[in-house]
């Protein structure tokens, strides 16, 4: 568990970090919380020649509201995300998700940006990111661009991240105020990652019919996905145990189920259904 030799530099600004990335000729990696990167380095699965530490860039810790979106700076730790008053007020789903990531040490060090850019297939945040139409804010020498989460994450540990860029933040759509949300997670007993994690936001109109519903599922397969079949089934209906149960049967339809020592695709499919049903019941009934 000892990495190969590497250099370490600190960046004082986003521009400096980008310059250092350019200087590294593709051999540099950005270090924030390090909770995904360092284990990979210790197992020698990745061997960057230089680590560019961005933790001193205060600008990346901002949280700000822009219209109907809330922008969370990339360097906010999971702990900070879970207690931030603006996040709790506008996108409580994200705060609730962050609270369930890893353990307390991980939450104290791991960051929003690092989590998203690492794109672990079993990370918690992508479920909420899919549900809240997240955009990943990416900066390079040519400026900043926003990329939708579904086009950013291509597969496990694979993203559309351009060269010599850093993630500066994640922008989430603030859901309508009459909705409720929840993140229901089935913990892998060894790793603490979700075997299945269901993020749901839903609300009803004045007639009692569902007028907003979003379901995102992470952990079950290679990438997180929106369970749009469930959403379509529910929209316009009055919520009841039977209606939710029926709709939840479609929970695995929009994603590919994965497999590991702990859970087969068949079992994951069942978990998607059961956890979707339970999540939706908790916010709609």
């Amino acid at each position: 568990m000892i990495p190969v030799t590497f250099d370490y530099v600190r960046a004082e600004s986003v521009n400096e970090a980008i310059q250092q990335l350019k200087d590294s000729d593709g051999e540099g990696k950005v270090l924030a919380g390090g909770h995904s990167l360092l284990p990979l380095m210790k197992m020698r699965l990745t061997e960057p020649q230089v680590l560019i530490d961005i933790t001193g860039i205060d600008a990346l810790k901002e949280v700000r509201k822009e219209g109907d979106r809330l922008i969370v700076g990339a360097l906010n730790t999971h702990r900070e995300v879970s207690i931030h008053p603006d996040i709790k007020e506008h996108i409580p789903l994200v705060a609730e998700t962050a609270r369930q990531i890893g353990d307390i040490q991980i939450r104290n060090k791991g960051t929003m940006g690092g989590n998203i850019v690492h794109a672990d297939s079993a990370a918690d945040l992508p479920a909420a990111a899919f549900v809240l139409d997240a955009e990943v804010l990416i900066t390079n020498e040519f400026g900043e661009q926003a990329m939708g989460i579904d086009s950013f994450i291509l597969g496990p540990l694979i993203t559309m991240m351009p060269e010599d860029s850093i993630v500066t933040g994640v922008s989430f759509q603030i859901p309508p105020t009459h909705t409720k949300s929840t993140y229901l997670k089935y913990f892998h007993p060894a790793s603490g990652y979700p075997v299945v994690g269901v993020a749901a936001v839903a609300g009803t109109d004045s007639n009692g019919n569902i007028d907003f519903v979003r379901v995102g599922i992470t952990g079950a397969g290679d990438v997180a996905f929106r369970a749009t079949s469930v959403e379509e089934e529910l929209l316009g209906k009055a919520p009841s145990e039977a209606v939710i149960k029926e709709a939840s049967k479609l929970a695995a339809d929009d994603g590919e189920m994965g497999s590991d020592l702990f859970a087969s695709p068949e079992y994951r499919e069942n978990l998607c259904k059961v956890y979707t049903e339970r999540a939706l019941k908790s916010i709609l009934l």
Partner: peptide, 16 residues
Amino acid sequence: LVSGTLMDYTLPKARF
């Protein structure tokens, strides 16, 4: 050995 790390091999935790 396919359960060779603590990511796959479940050691019980206090909260269990």
